[in-house]
Write a protein that binds this DNA or RNA. Structure first.
Length: 394
DNA sequence: CCTCCACAGGAAGCGCAGGAGT
DNA sequence: ACTCCTGCGCTTCCTGTGGAGG
């Protein structure tokens, strides 16, 4: 006999408001980002005085509060009366100059946002609209490194300021990769990077106080042990200082406690949450894998179970696989599946992709192994990975 | 010491699908 | 709707590296 909704409802929950633990939630104040917020405010301040703000570039790893800080400042900014407009564009979705301009028009002059208009038409519509009352238009480009033709976009937007007689357009770019700067044309680089702010990762203490702040609002009084908060902070800071991950740990821990009908979040719940969150990440990564990478991973998993022909022992006694023998395995598995195997060169590329995703780890062969090869080990339990792949094929 | 083996990873080139511009 | 262009996935070819074996 399954439980009814009201059964579950009446059982109560450790949460008051789960949304508070979501990464999209913007709290009343963002601890440990005062300096950065201040810089952003100073950067956009000219718009309140009817001057064009400088372009701004914000860089920091995931979960360092870049987007939250910008959203926070922009919310405050919108409260002030000013002759300005803001567009917040997620470049992961709007990833070309055309799409971004289209989105800008759609947000502020929807009647012109029909498909089929060329770039130049959209450009002129934006100019007209900005010039109409000489406003300052701030375009926030979140995950700006995803834009394919970024040079063209930056050129178009900065060029607009020359074509405008009144008002101006400025860019706030947000990225978690610094390397994309190298791909930029020097001219667009210098105009995009007029002002630069770097968001450092949070340390354990800072994560702790962030979590405490959220727990106070999101969870019922006193249900989360302080040591559990500290543990979540410690785990997250050990990884990358990612606040998103830390919040996810506590959210999941709370869900685990709710499900078990408990009434307090303890260290062990955070430990369980960590396993589950990591597994979710692995599951997502595996199930969205291109098929040949999946076959490679499958070969690694099953060969780990059956054992390597070479079975060299590492320091903690676990076996490594050699890339050569994994290629053999990959060949036979792809043929078994009726797929034409890719070349050895591309196979190596697959391996390093899988390593990037954290699904396998590789080390250069040291002494004892013949020549120059890589020793491969799977990052998660091979049985589980095999299981996930078998299910995702069916 | 030299050569060979087994592999790493860069460079160039090719066909294809999908997007931009007309 | 139609062509042109570009990025992408992939192959082929190539050079580099370090231990094993003659």
């Amino acid at each position: 006999m399954p439980e009814s909704f009201s059964d579950i409802l009446s059982r109560g929950s450790v949460f008051i408001d789960r949304n508070v633990m979501s990464p999209h939630y913007i709290p009343e104040n963002l601890p440990h980002r005062e300096k950065e917020i201040n810089k952003i405010m100073r950067a956009v301040l000219p718009a309140l005085k009817n001057q064009r703000p400088q372009n701004l570039f914000i860089y920091g790893k995931t979960g360092t509060g870049k987007t939250s800080s910008v959203k926070y400042v922009m919310a405050k900014f919108a409260e002030m009366k000013s002759n300005s407009a803001i567009s917040h564009v997620n470049c992961r979705i709007y990833n070309s100059r055309y799409r971004i301009l289209n989105k800008m028009v759609a947000e502020h002059a929807p009647k012109f946002a029909k498909p089929g208009f060329g770039i130049s038409f959209l450009y002129e519509k934006i100019l007209d609209w900005v010039e109409g009352d000489g406003k300052n238009f701030i375009v926030i480009l979140d995950e700006i490194d995803m834009v394919r033709d970024l040079d063209d976009l930056v050129y178009t937007l900065t060029r607009a300021n020359d074509d405008l007689t009144k008002g101006g357009i400025s860019i706030i770019g947000i990225s978690n990769r610094l390397s994309f700067k190298d791909r930029l044309d020097p001219r667009s680089r210098s105009s995009l990077l007029e002002t630069e702010i770097v968001f450092p990762p949070y340390n354990s203490k800072q994560l702790q106080s962030i979590l405490e702040g959220r727990v106070k609002v999101g969870f019922a009084d006193g249900v989360v042990r302080e040591s559990a908060i500290n543990l979540a902070a410690a785990i997250a800071s050990q990884e990358t200082g990612d606040a998103r991950y830390a919040l996810q740990l506590l959210l999941k821990a709370g869900e685990i406690v709710d499900e078990a009908g408990g009434n307090g979040v303890e260290d062990k719940d955070v430990e369980l949450a960590r396993k589950s969150v990591d597994e979710d990440v692995a599951y997502d990564a595996i199930s969205t894998l291109p098929e040949h990478q999946r076959v490679v991973l499958y070969a690694v998993a099953s060969m780990t179970i059956s054992g390597s022909r070479y079975q060299k022992l590492s320091d903690n006694g676990e076996g490594y696989l050699l890339s050569g023998e994994v290629y053999e395995g990959y060949l036979s598995y792809s043929r078994k599946l009726g797929k034409k195997p890719r070349s050895a060169r591309w196979f190596r590329q697959y391996l390093s992709d899988l390593e990037m995703l954290g699904l396998i780890t590789m080390v250069e062969s040291g002494k004892g192994q013949r020549g120059h090869t890589r020793l491969i080990r799977i990052a998660y339990s091979p049985e589980k990975v095999k299981d996930i792949i078998e299910k995702s094929i069916a």
